[in-house]
Amino acid sequence: MKPMLRTLFALIVLLPAIAWANNYPLVLDPMVTATPPGAKVSAGYMTLTNESDKAITITGAYSPDVAKVEIHLSLVENDVAKMQKQDSLTIEPNASLTFEHGSYHIMLMDLEDPLKENTTIDIVLITSSGDMLIEMPIKKLGHGNHGANGEKMSSDMKHEDMNEADTSMKSMTDDKTDTESMPKPAKVVH
């Protein structure tokens, strides 16, 4: 990420992302999976909520840090795991779209270096409202984290991966007892 962008983030990070929402989807719980040694791919997950009264279409993604980024759907059909590139996804008005295990993900390909946990990666979503840059925290997989069948935030959520990544968010809310069910606003630039 460019130094100027970093400064920009520093200025806006303490303000709720919703202030920028307008016709952009609200980004919650963004994460990219840290990669095992040798892995050339990773996946990004999050929930996008369209709070406007107009449908928002996502037609692609890119990143200054990754050679190739696509939107994929992974599915298991007749016990066979498959991946399908998605050309366009629509979020209806007042609806959400979740990128999660066993469903949609931001597919990062041709990685040159491993993605290390507790760092971040910039992903730009191309939407009908314009491009939006999302700073996505890189996390190790935890059990139940963004699980299939909407089972994210399960009882297994005691693992360390939630802790550090949440630190910045805790300063934004006084409700420390309810961090597990609290959606976490993302750092977003439009």
Binding site: V41, H72, H101, M107, A148
Partner: peptide, 17 residues
């Protein structure tokens, strides 16, 4: 396979658990 972004790492992660 290692170029599998979703199902494989998640399955191995669950197996670790």
């Amino acid at each position: 396979f290692t170029n599998c972004p979703d199902v494989c790492p998640i399955t191995l992660n669950e197996m670790n658990g």
